[in-house]
Design a protein around this nucleic acid. Structure first.
Lengths: 192, 192
DNA sequence: GTCTATATCAAGATAGAC
DNA sequence: GTCTATCTTGATATAGAC
């Protein structure tokens, strides 16, 4: 069940792979508005024009980053589930989701605040892979599963935009909402 | 308790007020990336340079839009509460929040996906006004109130970015999560 | 309060040579 | 696969005249 390296899941030439890796590093180091074709190229030591030999346009580069990020997010969740077999899976998935997002904020924002290009096969497959963990954690209560996701995303997004009151700990908000939802999920989802 | 017209709450010259109104109309009609100084000016029939007589920079124009939007959102929620005195207030607030957001998507996105400029006094006051309704709806369970907000924002944001599965009704996700949170809030918040 | 004119910058993308 | 050179567009913002 150990995951393949994400490179093996994605249909890119080796060079395009490498560019996507550097682009992602750039994104995480310098933020989203630094992710320009020029900056990506400069980091690799080539000219922006040369990138178009490997990607049709900027959107395609972003898609590669997003797809790789979703696989990595899934792998991270999978590892946490393996490491915590006695915790309620939905709690493990939720905590892992949040930790990953907060550890990769620019990547998370890129993934969530643009529409996903579902006609890009790599993106669509990566989305299915990542969503699978949520699905399995909630059994047949798929709508409630999506509600967990919405709650998690909402807390993370408010936190990232500094919208929560400064005198409150976001972790308390998180715990309060998560507990309420888990109560509703009940025993059904209590173990995998 | 009827609200003042939002103009009266905001410290802008009449001309600046008028510009902000047009800017907001532009935002709602043509979306966020159409909100440029050039486009705002063109809609009024002046040149972009002239706007700087009334606002220090673009950010200030956005702040005026956001502050007015928050007051309007608050008024909308207040009206719903008055119209539904027998419903659980937290449910009324949540439903009103969602309806307002979905009816003013570009405004909502502008308000939520930029940081708020809290040193702009108008913005800070508007935020307090809008947050007050949530506060009163949850009594002393303020963290849970923030969890309601996070959940609502999360559903709305996923919905706006087309992230929810196409074969599921977002309303079902909404209802499922809201019901779970309301259950946890219990009788305390059942009436105002 | 608005104008013209302009500075400044940066973005995505293409053509065609090597 | 990368280069140079360039096109095209569009943004925020300022100076100074009227």
């Amino acid at each position: 069940m150990t995951a393949l390296p994400s490179g093996a899941r994605v249909s890119l030439t080796p060079r395009a792979q490498q560019i996507a890796v550097e682009a992602r590093a750039l994104l995480e180091e310098r933020g989203r508005e630094a992710l320009s074709m020029r900056n990506i190229a400069a980091r690799i030591g080539i000219r922006a024009a040369s990138l178009y030999e490997h990607f049709a346009d900027k959107r395609a580069v972003e898609n590669a980053i997003v797809a790789a990020g979703l696989y990595e997010q899934g792998d991270f969740i999978a590892a946490r589930l393996e490491a915590n077999p006695d915790e309620p899976p939905m709690r493990v998935v939720a905590e892992a989701y949040r930790d990953f997002a907060l550890d990769h904020q620019a990547l998370y924002a890129l993934t969530m605040s643009r529409g996903l290009d579902r006609d890009a096969p790599d993106v669509a497959a990566a989305e299915r892979y990542a969503a699978g963990f949520l699905r399995r954690a909630v059994g047949d209560r798929w709508e409630l599963g999506l509600a967990f996701w919405a709650f998690a995303h909402g807390v993370i997004d408010l936190e990232m935009h500094d919208r929560l009151p400064p005198n409150r700990d976001p972790r308390d908000v998180w715990e309060e909402g998560l507990a309420a939802l888990l109560k509703d999920l009940g025993a059904e989802g209590a173990n995998a």
